[in-house]
């Protein structure tokens, strides 16, 4: 009872301290939070709202012209033959591109990690180079290299007697060409992550496996691959997220052609944005968003550790 005034003072002090902590904390995060809210979180919500309306570019000046249309835009998305075409192309890009890039990145990482390699830094820097370069510049170069008669690729094929095709103008070859180019451009990133993952595997695991008489192949299957699972999960998720949004390659290499054979979902959204169909473009982008979340969850299910 007699301690009451002190208690109150203590409580007041604590409250003041808590307030001070809140003020300092928010002081540090508020510049970030404001910019983040305005330019990231806000647009995510606005886009969702837009996807339930018939908003077009003309409505920006006169917001009263916007009508709520419920799920109409989403219904339109799934009835749009170009969207279905673009989804097919994007699915191909992901289904072929992700395993191809991961296999290539892992192969290079294993090669560099095998302990036999000299010039490790040269190799590592060289394989990583395409990752840091501008896609626009890369595409200028690759359009030259892939040209039917003056390109280096067909020139090299000519040396071994193969008559190289017109890579980018052939409806059946344009998308696979872009997939290979994307793998070429991104495998360096995968390599770096895989290298870090490989180096984190304790050496005594290999020693124990060898004492048990495991061959190199068995060591790879029963030590390397299981220990690499978390790294693989990370790489698979990151690559899937980025490949599902593939767009720039096709924008600068083929403009979505020929005959929409390289039109991706993101590209289609961008085109609809260009036509001023804001509501429709937003609905389509949300469909892509859902696909990204779903596929990432799928990877987690497939690759998460068995014992968890």
């Amino acid at each position: 009872m007699t301690a009451r005034p002190q208690d109150a003072a203590l409580r007041r002090g604590r409250r003041a301290a808590r307030l001070r902590r809140a003020v300092t904390g928010w002081g540090f995060v508020s510049p970030f939070t404001i910019l983040f809210a305005v330019f990231m979180a806000g647009p995510v919500l606005i886009s969702l709202a837009m996807s339930f309306t018939d908003m077009r570019s003309a409505d920006v000046r006169d917001p009263l012209g916007v009508n709520f249309v419920g799920l109409d835009q989403y219904a339109k998305v799934f009835g749009d033959p170009l969207f279905l075409k673009a989804s097919g192309n994007t699915a191909f890009f992901v289904l072929v591109g992700v395993p191809l890039t991961m296999a290539a990145g892992l192969a290079v990482a294993l090669g560099l990690n095998s302990g036999l390699t000299r010039f490790k830094t040269v190799f590592r820097v060289g394989y990583y180079l395409p990752v840091v370069t501008s896609i626009v510049a890369v595409s200028v170069v690759w359009r030259f290299l892939l040209q039917p008669d003056t390109g280096l690729v067909n020139g090299l094929l000519g040396l071994v007697g193969v008559d190289g095709p017109n890579w980018l103008d052939d409806e059946n070859l344009s998308l696979p060409s872009l997939v290979v180019m994307a793998a070429w451009r991104n495998l360096g990133f995968q390599m770096v992550i895989f290298l870090a993952g490989l180096q984190a595997i304790p050496a005594n695991l290999y020693e124990a496996a060898r004492l048990d008489g495991a061959s190199r192949r068995q060591q790879f299957r029963h030590v390397t691959l299981p220990m690499l699972r978390p790294t693989m999960l990370f790489v698979a998720v990151i690559t899937t997220i980025s490949y599902l949004q593939f767009f720039e390659e096709s924008y600068v290499m083929t403009q979505g052609g020929p005959l929409n054979s390289t039109l991706s979902v993101s590209f289609h959204v961008f085109k609809q944005f260009g036509f001023g169909n804001y509501g429709y473009a937003s609905a389509m982008s949300y469909v892509l968003f859902v696909a990204i979340v779903a596929l990432s969850l799928l990877w987690f299910r497939l690759l998460k550790r068995k014992d968890q």
Partner: peptide
């Protein structure tokens, strides 16, 4: 939470903004 949001989702509102 925003890590998985594709760039195209924010593109249109950002442009309008």
């Amino acid at each position: 939470g925003t890590v998985m949001v594709p760039g195209m989702v924010t593109f249109v509102p950002l442009f309008v903004l």
